[in-house]
Each structure stands twice: as C-alpha cells, then as structure tokens.
Write a protein that binds this DNA or RNA. Structure first.
Lengths: 234, 234
DNA sequence: AAACAGTATTGCGGTTTTGTGACATTTGCA
DNA sequence: TGCAAATGTCACAAAACCGCAATACTGTTT
C-alpha cells in the first residue's frame, strides 16, 4: 500500500503509536505537533493522506482542515480526523470542516489502518494495495513485483512507479506534465522530456517479456498504457 | 502555455528579473508596484495568473489576495505568493488567504516557471472525458481514440482535433475560417485551403472503416459532419 | 460548350515531436 | 571511502506532421 502519510498530533505517546503502526504497514511517515509546521511540510511535498488531531495547540485541527480544503494545491488531500471525544457535535464539525473520515480515540492500530486503506482506495486507486493485471502483465504492489508469464521484470523505482500509475489508470492518455505530477510529485522540478527517458527504460525492461507494446505513444498528447494493440487501420 | 500574468512586486530588481524570465517563457506580462494599481489593471483585463508579493506598500499581498477571492469576477484567478521570509506563520497566512501556491525568495526563474506551469495546469480542468458517437463513429477524448466497430482509426493531432470539433458540432456547416478559428486557434496564420488538406487526410483515415461519408462538403459554404446521407435531390 | 469558381489530390520542404544512447551527478550501501 | 544503481539532461537521429502550392476535378453559369 505504501503511502506517504503526514501525522499531526501533539500527544507524544499517541504520535509514537501511530507512527509505529503506519511504518509497520510500510507507509512513509512524517509527523509534527502543530498545524503551522504541518503546513511547512506540505508546502514542500504533498502527502497522500493527512492524519489530523482534532485538538491541537495553536490552530485547531478543524481550522487546519478547512485551510487545506481552501487552497487549490491541497484541497484534494484525504484527511482523517482523530478525536478524543465521541461527541456527536464534534463529529459534525469535523466532517463539516472537510475531513474524509473520522476516528475516535482510543482506537486500535488495526482500525486505523483499515480506515486509511479505505480512504486511500476511494481517493487514489494506485495507492491501494492491489494486484493489477493488464494485457498479460501483472504488477503486485504488495510484493513490489512485475511479472509476465511467471517471468519477473526488473524495474528501477521510478519505472515501477510509472508503470504502476499507468496500470492503475490505463487506457487513458496522460501528458508528460500529468505524469510528472502524479509519478514524480507536484513540487519536483524536472524537465518534461525526462518522462520520455523513463518511458524508454520501462519499455526496454518490458521488451524482455514481450510486453513493450503495452506502452503506447500518443503523438501530441502523451502516453497511454493499453491492452488493446494499436491497430493501424491503414 | 503562453499565459497573461500580472506581477505585483515593489522591488524593482526582482520585478525586472521576474518579468524578464516570464517574457522569455513567452508569457505576456503586466506589472505594478502595489495592490491599488493592480486592481485597476485587473478591472481592465483579467490575467490568467497573478504573482503577488507578500510585502507590499499599502494594502498587503495577503489582503489583496483575499479581496480577489471575494469578488466573483476574480475569485478563480490563480495566485502565487512571493515572500522573502521563510517564516511558517507567513506561509500559513499566505495559503489561508487563498493563494494557490507559495514561493520563497530567493528562487530561481526555473522554479518560478515550474510552479506557474503547475498552477496553470491544475486550474485548467483536463479536457472532460467526453465520448462522442455519431453514425457509428466513436471518439473518446480521454483515451484519445477514434473507433468504428472496434477498429481503431489512426489520426494525427490536427485531424483528431478537427474530427473532435466536427463531432461535437455536427449537423452544422462550418466555413473554413470558422474551422481555422476553432480547431487551429484564434489568430493563426494559415491558408484557408489548408483545411481542405486536413479534411482530405481525415476522410482518407476514415475510409479504412468506411466512415468517410460522414464528412460532407457543402459547396460554397464549408464542411459538415452528419450521420444522415448526403442526399442527391435529383 | 466554354469560362468560371469552388473543391480534391498529391508531392515536397521544413518543422516539431519522439526515440535513444551517452554522460555527469547523486544516492545508498558495502 | 569506493562502488554500483538510479536519475535527470543533453545532443543527435528518426519519425510524424504541417502547410503550401501546383495540378486535376466538378458542378454552375452564361
């Protein structure tokens, strides 16, 4: 599943527990105690999900959530609120402020992970822990393996992410910029043409199992991964 | 990418640098030193994006941003804040005031351009996934594919755009100049006759799936895409 | 039927977009 | 510290695409 998760929680014990659980589940975790610092982190790189304590020193969790929802860049980040109170009115305010889900302390790591998975699945198909199979090519994000006819394909990290994204969003054309946003991250400054090079590396790796035809170029538009062979009526 | 960008920055040196970089990148730049004047310019013509210094004489950048967000006419203009301080509290206020992104001085022209690009891209809703189908011909803009009876038709970028336009405005005659405006772009210096050539290429590609009859010539008027037969009243 | 005006076709030079291999750095790790 | 894998850029080659103009058609008008 491997997502990047930002935890904003001021109680050290809970912070610790959460971070540990998340890391166990192979997530990448960054954490802070307050909204201000969280903003700084987010400004640098966008996480896949934010775990947000309801009660925070300084700016409250609800306000922070609202703020994230307001800014264009952050408005689509999934947010899960953590709260100590099982008070109904909090729940309402929490969801109203734009949270995707809500979890009441005390909670089990198991429950937390389940909710995270659910939210991620809803928001970003490629972050969920799945096995994708298209055109005889199989990618298992849990074991981090790509195979075709039982033969394993060796891929570098970037090529893996690229293929993963393409497979979870197949049949659709993605421009180079879109791929950069989605695969590299939105605040990474890399040339558009770099995508070409990685597409090339990906294709080269797929040649070994005769699946390089899946990655198609759409001139003037970008790239597409498709099981349907590019039929040239002509 | 060529966008119209308004730069609001009071330091002449930085102003200069920014304007130069933006012009290099083919953007149209207008600039002022303060919010009041910026407002005047915006009243006149709406820019595609505003680069806004955080510290301004008179009305502050944050206040100006909030103001832009409040007015209906300007509330969707993307805003990127410029700030000298890497102070988190600024960051918070900056984003809270509704900026789309945030960049800290000193920054490289390269980074600035990248962020502008990212913001503009985020704003422009990627061409909606529309699927048009007429007379057995199917065009899917998300996958960038044209098919008839499951057979794919290979088209170049221009032919694709041309067909897309005709399909989304079918049963209507379009003069060559209209097509040039709509498909090629507003003021592109291209001969009317060139349309003929692309119509020809389009028809040729459609011949392979026996759909070339859809593209009809209306003598003295232009072209039309229609599912109905070209009737010979005789 | 001849002159005309509008349209179809085609070949071609020049551009733009992609593909590819090489190279310099960076990163992680032994 | 030194090595190997991974990455981003570049420069050049290859391919696809564009627009134009010259030429061949077609239907209209006189």
């Amino acid at each position: 599943m491997a997502a990047t998760i930002l935890v904003v929680e001021d109680e050290p014990a809970i912070q610790e527990l959460i971070s540990y659980s998340l890391r166990q589940a192979k997530h990448t975790v960054s954490s802070t105690k307050n909204a201000e610092e969280a903003m700084k982190i987010i400004n640098d790189t966008l996480p896949d999900l934010v775990l947000l304590d309801w009660m925070l020193p300084g700016m409250s969790g609800a306000d922070f959530a609202r703020m994230l929802r307001r800014a264009a860049r952050t408005k689509d980040i999934p947010i899960i609120m953590l709260t100590a109170r099982a008070d109904e009115s909090d729940k309402v305010t929490g969801l109203e402020s734009g949270a995707d889900d809500y979890i009441t302390k005390p909670f089990s790591p198991r429950e937390l992970l389940a909710r995270i998975k659910a939210v991620l699945r809803r928001r970003a198909p490629e972050a969920a822990d799945d096995v994708v199979e298209i055109g005889g090519l199989r990618l298992d994000s849990a074991t981090h393996r790509v195979t075709a006819n039982e033969i394993e394909v060796a891929l570098g990290p970037t090529e893996f992410r690229l293929l993963h994204y393409l497979m979870t969003h197949s049949e659709r054309v993605h421009s180079r910029s879109q791929l950069l946003d989605q695969v590299w991250g939105d605040h990474v400054f890399v040339e558009d043409r770099t995508v070409d090079v990685h597409i090339r590396r990906l294709r080269k790796a797929l040649e070994n199992v005769d699946k390089d035809g899946l990655v198609q170029t759409v001139r003037g538009a970008g790239y597409r991964l498709s099981a349907g062979q590019a039929v040239n009526a002509g």
